[in-house]
Design a protein around this nucleic acid. Structure first.
Length: 438
RNA sequence: GUGGUCGUAGCUCAAUUGGCAGAGCACUCGGUUGUGGUCCGAGGGGUUGCGGGUUCGAGCCCCGUCGACCACCCCA
């Protein structure tokens, strides 16, 4: 062997392992998403984790941050320019068109769960590989679905027992009314350029709508006087927006109109929303102070223009995505419990080579009867095995000594009380099922 | 991409001015016949994130680098 060069491997920047101890939270979230999705009629779809890169640049927009600097693009050996998916909606729409879902009864409701990839500076709750659960309603323009997507989103959080949620909602208009508004906005800010922060000066040229999203103090002040999108919606957008409110009100969903809410993806039209949670998160590197702030759990909106951009088709749609890492982070901070996935019911203790072989068989018998068995076959001493049994939290230990193995008997020990009895092997399954109330 | 704080055992953290790298928890084994938890004892674990430099001597000082966290930016 060549000289050993020490290299300590770390998971790549912004990625992380989901360890066994944490799986229970992920399982709980996946279960809630699945249950809610199916109960609202969303069926599962799985799309590739990479697509042709131009699918995203066309769908999301050339001048968005995601496309400009956050995409993982690479060339395949065949020369195609591909990209790891930075979000789910574009791929779902591509699949809808490609698989002729236009011929299904409309709308088509789909949900997905899986990793997304963005090349960004990581922070807590922000990763280069993160996971989203998303709902999409494709092929219907009715405002009722804008509301339903929001309701489904909240239902997931509610099913998990989450508190302090708030929906912020806005309408960013459509190609009929937005350009006129944009012109007006630019006109307003052009006379006040001097008062803007340097980022907003840039935004004024590239993406004026985002001016409304700035958090700088001086820009905040200007915003108060800036023209409001919702005051300049065309009649169709206005009526649509009003209906969304009416549907949310009908179900008494608490929401707040945020006229400055703008989302960073080009494909949105009409309704946009984000769901926030009042969260306690750590601020400051060394001096850790806890500060309450609102954390975005996810968001979404209507994207009636996306299919036109992508395929020249008219497929009005609306969707939302939940950030799973953030959801789980909040669950932990709100002390929401998840039950462990692995809970052995009985622990098998073997003594001696003959017994060990018999136990291997017994393990199979118990397993096919639906009893979860744990073991530490690698250990020989009864002491070590019972210690493992104790830590496994199994209710019952089965002890098969050499003598019992020959006589066709086995010792059933209740771990809590320490009471134990020797019974014949034939009765074992029956006795265990009684004790475990199966 | 820019700036700030921080990296010591699996985890939580010590180590005086630059002077022998430690503790608790966890893990493994033992406390005499085939019985766990409590208790007692022992053991395994570290190139102090990594690479250079200064120094008789570096966990500590300097430079670089990687990573985590925070802010900007943006978002989930």
């Amino acid at each position: 062997m060549a000289t050993q060069v020490k290299k300590t491997f770390q998971s790549p920047k912004g990625t992380f392992d989901i360890l066994p101890d944490d799986q229970k939270y992920w399982e709980k979230v996946r279960k809630a998403v699945k249950h809610v999705a199916l109960s609202y009629g969303f069926e599962r779809i799985d799309i590739p984790m990479f697509e042709h890169a131009d699918l995203y640049s066309t769908a999301i927009g050339q001048s968005t941050d995601i496309v400009e600097k956050e995409m993982y693009t690479f060339r395949s050996k065949g020369g195609d320019l591909l990209a790891l998916r930075p979000e789910g909606t574009a791929g779902v729409m591509r699949s809808y068109v490609e698989n002729g879902m236009l011929n299904l009864p409309q709308p088509v409701k789909l949900y997905y769960v899986g990793p997304m990839f963005r090349y960004e500076q990581p922070q807590a709750g922000r990763y280069r590989q993160h996971h989203q659960a998303g709902f999409e309603v494709l092929g219907d323009q009715d405002a009722v679905y804008d509301a339903q997507v929001i309701i489904a989103f909240l239902a997931v959080a509610q099913e998990l027992g989450m508190k302090n949620l708030r929906v912020e909602i806005n309408s960013i208009g459509c190609p009929k009314c937005r350009p006129a508004f944009r012109t007006q906005l630019v006109r307003f800010y052009k006379t006040r350029v001097a008062k803007l922060c340097k980022d907003c000066k840039r935004r004024l040229k590239d993406n004026p709508l985002r001016l409304l999203d700035c958090k700088e103090e001086k820009c905040e002040q200007l915003k108060a006087y800036a023209p409001n999108l919702i005051d300049h919606l065309c009649e169709e957008c206005h009526n649509h927006f009003k209906l969304v409110f009416e549907y949310l009100d009908e179900l008494e969903i608490p929401y707040a109109l945020n006229p400055h809410l703008v989302r960073g993806l080009d494909y949105y039209t009409k309704t946009v929303f984000e769901v926030f949670v009042e969260d306690e998160h750590v601020e400051g590197g060394s001096e850790k102070t806890h500060q309450r702030s609102k954390l975005a759990l996810g968001g979404g909106g209507r994207y009636d223009q996306l299919a036109k951009t992508l395929a020249g088709k008219d497929i009005p749609s609306v969707g939302a995505a939940i950030g799973m890492e953030r959801l789980i982070g909040v669950m932990k901070r709100q002390n929401i419990k998840a039950t462990p996935l692995y809970k052995p019911e009985v622990f098998l203790v073997q003594l001696g080579a003959f017994s060990k072989k018999k136990c291997l068989r017994l393990f199979e018998d118990l397993r096919v009867h639906g009893i979860t068995v744990a073991e530490s076959f690698g250990k020989d001493s009864i002491k070590a095995q019972l210690r493992s049994a104790d830590r496994s939290a199994a209710k019952i230990a089965l002890i098969l000594g050499h003598k019992e193995a020959i006589d066709g008997m086995i010792i059933v020990r209740e771990m809590d009380s320490g009471a134990q009895e020797s019974i014949s092997m034939e009765k074992l399954i029956k006795v265990l099922k009684e004790k475990l109330k199966k």
